Computed example of a mutant assay.
Amino acid sequence: MFQQAMEGLRVVENGTYLDGTFGRGGHARGVLQRLGGGGRLLLMDKDPEAIAVAEREFGADPRVSIRRGSFADLANWDAAQSGLDGVLLDLGVSSPQLDVGERGFSFGKDGPLDMRMDPDSGESAAQWLARASEQEIADVLWTHGEERMSRRIARAIVARRAQQPLERTADLAQLIAANMPRSKPARGQKEIHPATRSFQAIRIHVNRELDDLAQGLDGAHAALKAGGRLAVISFHSLEDRIVKRFIARHAKAPPADRRLPAAAPFVPTLRIIGDAQKAGAAETAANPRARSAVLRVAEKLLEAAA
């Protein structure tokens, strides 16, 4: 959704922008092409491999500053505290992370059961599955993956680890598949691997993705200048729901409750820019992952409106 994201950010020549999910730099290149000599681009990513790419490709550009870390902490970066004209967040796992089996994200490529976006921080998926209770595993699979067989899968994981640790993605994928009922996809729909939802849920939990998103949205809202744009690309309903509700909370007055004392007048601090956007047919044909992408854009209101 490159073009839609660039249009949503509405880059101004001498503005300051933050790309909180650098990945491999597709959006960063687009922003830099639109910036003049007085513009600035702040780049963040948890992944050391992404940061290495950023340093190699953009480290010599005086307009660019690079920081390894989660966008959850963007408001604490000194470079962002003078105000931002735009913040871009492209959520979820990146294609390079999925394509390398050693990172442990993919059930289709065998590798160590890791799943950490920052491999130097926190527990790996294998470490978490080795210590979490059956109830905790089931709760994560249901809450973050909406997996209907969450209890059965959790029970199977606990039984398996009592005999042998789960240390490979292929082992976990096979265990999940063996405990899922077989069903044919509806006509016209592609078959989904039985481990899809569970892998998503474990990845989200290990990386604190939803907590980071909530904190990062607050940070972006605080750092944006009046007229600055927030553009967020989500890839599943849990993320998109958080983004949609966050924007609405700052853009729309809550419903009045006559049973409560009159509240202070609602003062919006964001303006919703257009409807949620999805990738077009050409993009989804070239990049099937884009099928589930949703872009939402909001603008920080002028100080005079507050």
Rank of each mutant, 00 (worst) to 15 (best):
Q4M: 04
E13N: 13
N14Q: 12
T16A: 15
T16L: 06
L18Y: 03
D19I: 08
G20C: 12
F22M: 10
G23N: 11
G26Y: 04
A28H: 03
G30T: 02
V31M: 06
R34N: 05
L41H: 04
L42A: 08
L42D: 00
M44P: 00
D47C: 11
A50D: 07
A54Y: 03
A54P: 04
R56N: 11
P62C: 14
P62M: 14
R63F: 02
R67K: 10
R68D: 00
A79M: 13
Q81I: 06
L84G: 11
L84Y: 05
D85R: 12
V87D: 09
V87W: 10
D90R: 15
S94R: 07
L98V: 04
V100A: 15
E102H: 13
R103N: 08
F107H: 05
D114C: 12
D114P: 14
R116E: 00
E123N: 14
W128I: 03
W128L: 03
R131K: 15
S133E: 12
Q135E: 15
D139M: 11
L141Q: 10
W142G: 14
R148D: 09
M149K: 14
I153S: 08
A156Q: 14
E167L: 11
T169N: 00
A173I: 00
Q174R: 15
I176M: 02
N179L: 03
K184V: 04
G188T: 08
Q189V: 09
H193G: 07
A201N: 06
V206D: 00
E209R: 07
D211S: 09
G216T: 09
G219V: 03
A220T: 03
H221F: 08
H221Q: 11
A222S: 12
K225H: 02
R229S: 10
A231K: 11
V232W: 00
I233T: 07
S237H: 09
S237M: 07
D240G: 11
D240E: 10
R241A: 12
I242K: 15
K244V: 02
R245Y: 00
I247G: 07
A248G: 03
A253M: 02
A256N: 12
R258T: 08
R259A: 14
P261W: 02
P261V: 00
A263T: 09
P265M: 01
P265Q: 09
V267N: 13
P268R: 06
R271G: 13
D275N: 14
A276F: 06
G280Y: 13
T284C: 14
A293I: 07
L295F: 08
K300W: 01
K300V: 11
A305P: 06
